[in-house]
Amino acid sequence: MADPLVDVRNLGVRLVTGQRETSLVDDVSFTVARGEVLCIVGESGCGKTITARSIMGLNRNDRRFSLSGQILFQGRDLMALSDAEMRGIRGTGIGMIFQDPMTSLNPLHRIGRQIGEGMRLHMKLSEAEIRERTLLLLAQVGIPNPRTRIDDYPHQFSGGMRQRAMIALALACSPALLIADEPTTALDVTTQKQILTLIARLKDTYGMGLILITHDLGIVAEIADRIMVMYAGQCVEVGPVRSVFRSPRHPYTAGLLASMPAANRGRTERLPSIRGTPPLLAEGRPQGCAFQPRCDFAFDRCAAMPLLSADDAGEGHLDRCWLPSGRLAQRDAAGEMRR
């Protein structure tokens, strides 16, 4: 764990539209090591996708976005790289799987050609070798009869198969880091489980670091090493998954965990949810703690923005809340979080 694969430091993403500037991602820092799984969770619109796309540099040439901070990948600052250098990292260093497999494959190209395109660019392989590796990849991601399916077009694949093909495509050049942005949101429940299991298994096979963006805390509990909770474009809590699940320190994290269906809870009981909605960042960031209007624990200090800090030494469990760490656990035990 000494040398992180990717080390994001104080990432900020601002959206510039005309005269207005809004901050979509603010001061986000995290690291992922080889073989480690970091899950990013948070309500819709809290900046998870933008964070992922920033690592991949997909918005670096979009004039509307201005990025700040550092993204160190294997020691190199991706933001300082030229476009050509960044292209060399994409696919080989970092692979990415997108949310919607129905639209993320080119409808006019055969599956095999799309998987092979990255290899053709980055690897010194003959056409025959590329085809062999493509077949191997298709088999690895669980496509039956790869030899007959390799020349299919995307529309001949089901949603689950397309996402499997997407995984094969992302892994084609054996990247060191895989980013999966809600890779199963568009799929049905049984397929979701299969795809996530597949991603987790391939992470081990390829010894990659994995950044998984998801809404499913059950999955997080199962496969994550560390979890980062985002709220309104900020990291509000980050740490080892067991520590965060056992003793959440930010009321937002506690709220998310409380809204998680658990096996030991009765089916009929209504799941608690966090009241209110997240702020619309396009209308400007609220003063102080962004969660304050929805928080049951707000007190006078919350008018000022808390810093991301550790309450106790070690473990790397950080939170962005003024509340002393013990307080939340006491109140939660008293059942006050449940509504």
């Binding site: 080989t92 990415m96 997108f98 494959l105 395109e117 990255g118 660019l121 495509l169 992302a170």
Partner: peptide, 17 residues
């Protein structure tokens, strides 16, 4: 703006490609 263009960029395909 299609998603598959992002996929291609994520593969490392350049502007001409």
């Amino acid at each position: 703006r299609e998603d598959y263009v992002d996929t291609a960029r994520a593969k490392g395909v350049g502007n001409a490609g």
